[in-house]
Design a protein around this nucleic acid. Structure first.
Lengths: 334, 334
DNA sequence: GTGAAAGCGCTAACAT
DNA sequence: ATGTTAGCGCTTTCAC
């Protein structure tokens, strides 16, 4: 391994001077700098970020912990944070939890072990209590979902109003029995979306039929399962999640259900295909790119400030979702 | 920052004993280990991976450098590598290049600076020459695309035969003027896909019309541009890339082109919606999940072996693609 | 403008 | 089974 010492030996300078020449910190004659850089290139020198962060007591890594990097929701976050990091000379530590609390904890420990400059987390269900102490050790934000224990800023969406709008749309079309596929209340998003749905029903003076709330994991599999049996009086469904929408569409396509003739459907997501499916799906669109940008900026701006800079009441930013009416919802048959 | 020294002071032991108790390496009395762990938990100790990698002359980081993490092609790779890392107690450094050679080089330097245990790269166009030396410093593989300069193992797809199959399919349906949207030959995949297309034409004794090969960047924008003007005698198109397919579908939907009545189309990709679009798109499917798995296993298995373990002729693994015939291709009008 | 020296936190070698 | 010591590569005083 080529070190600063090797360059010092090669150029006949001291390690200190070499470091200054390379880092551009202290004073160095331009000629010296030249000579040092030439030697560094020739010998193939690359700094050791381990040594540097040891000395500096901080690294240039920013961490992101997500349930699933294939999900576009989260890969957009990764893209935005990676871009923001690159612009600032920071680097990017990605961790995937698969919504497993143990894995989540391991990854959070790894972030602390790496002395990450900042960490963003999409918390899974039942986060371990020891996450709290780990989160306090650097600037930290929660994304999309919010754990009740973790005191931190949060960047997410106004899930309730999104679902309320969607539900109201169906009610105004005359639908009275609306099936909701969503994630369970162990996920803050699942809970919020259920609230939005039930609130809309209550505002219209309707009672909530618990059998029509199909809560489960936010997966394609649950999307399928949630509509495996649709009671005959149901005339509309809402799939309140990207993967749930995908699973439901898969089943509906297989069955050859006529949309919106037999059934109205409101989907959820940002994927382009939603606007191509059956002439364009009526859907809830979380503006993920905006959120990702906002959050990346904020998180990185907090680097260097005190870690636990969170004062309760601040920094809870719910971004509104967009509701787009397409061809998959129509008045209920009378 | 709580260090081993603090635990040593707290327990009245020496730093070395504490390290042994925590790491489980050297011999320690169970009772001592107990005491040390209790103190570590109480004080909130988390090991410094910087210090550890400095001492060990190696880190527990595995790097992946991709053009675009939102592209499912690459997020699948990330998922597979992240999972494989987690299973082995390694961690995951992700870098995004946006197909910018400068950014690619910066990210590769960062990997070397972090003394990554292994690195996988999806090379962009015109990789810098200095990538060569950086690649040699740890186990290294190329993914999907292949740079001619970089000597390393490669995991990708049999792009040529995939395109040849697709083109032959259209030829056998009687199409004689087939437009190809693809990436330029600065991308190894673009070049290979073009070869597959022209080979098929030549085998059928047809000449290649260069005006029908629309090469550009692998982006949605180019997918749109490539079919902005379709010459009247063209009866079929192939969009040889995921984002190109997306862009083309967007335009075709806007224009209300009848598929396959007016035009046959062969797409490319793994996304679920391809099988929903117009009753299922005829398409080339690269089995990305298999490739990702294979590559992750291989890369991690090489950790600890000599870095430049590449002998020419070895390790060029092109995985076959799948060709699925859907509802978007039909016999050419006569 | 340059050099000498110290120390970041950890662990392995060696001594007890 | 535990303690002592040294050093990984870098940067930052502090001298000169």
């Amino acid at each position: 391994m080529v070190t600063i010492k090797d360059i010092a030996r090669d150029t006949g300078l001291s390690p200190a001077t070499v470091a200054r020449a390379l880092g551009g910190n202290g004073p160095t004659r331009p000629e010296t700098r030249q000579r040092v850089h030439e030697a560094a290139d020739r010998l193939g020198y690359v700094v050791s970020s381990a040594a540097r962060s040891m000395r500096n007591q901080s690294s240039d890594m920013v961490g992101l912990i997500v349930p699933d990097i294939v999900n576009r929701f989260y890969s957009e976050m990764a893209r935005a944070i990676a871009a923001a990091c690159d612009a600032r000379g920071l680097h990017f530590l990605l961790a995937v939890t698969d919504d497993d609390p143990d894995r989540e904890l391991r990854q959070m420990r790894a972030m602390v072990a790496a002395r990450a400059a900042a960490v963003a987390l999409v918390p899974g269900p039942h986060s371990h209590r020891s996450m709290i102490a780990l989160a306090e050790r650097q600037p930290f934000v929660q994304l999309v979902r919010r754990s009740e224990w973790l005191r931190s800023e949060w960047f997410g969406f106004e899930e309730e109003s999104g679902l309320e709008t969607a539900t109201t749309h169906l009610l105004s079309l005359g639908h009275r029995h609306i099936l909701l596929a969503c994630s369970g209340d162990r996920y803050s998003t699942g809970a919020a979306r259920q609230r939005g749905y039930t609130d809309a029903l209550k505002k219209h003076g309707l009672s909530v039929d618990d059998a029509l709330i199909r809560a489960g994991e936010p997966t394609v599999a649950h999307g399928r399962a949630a509509i495996a049996d649709i009671p005959p009086h149901v005339t509309a469904i809402i799939t309140a999640g990207t993967l749930l929408t995908e699973g439901a569409v898969d089943v509906l396509t297989d069955r050859g259900v006529s949309i919106p003739g037999d059934l109205s459907i409101v989907g959820f997501g940002i994927e382009k295909w939603l606007q191509w499916w059956r002439g364009g799906m009526t859907r809830i669109i979380p503006p993920v790119d905006v959120l990702a940008e906002t959050c990346a900026e904020h998180l990185l701006s907090r680097i260097g400030t005190e870690a636990a800079g969170y004062s309760s009441g601040t920094g809870v930013i719910g971004h509104p979702t967009v509701f787009e009416i397409g061809q998959t919802t129509a008045p209920a048959a009378t």
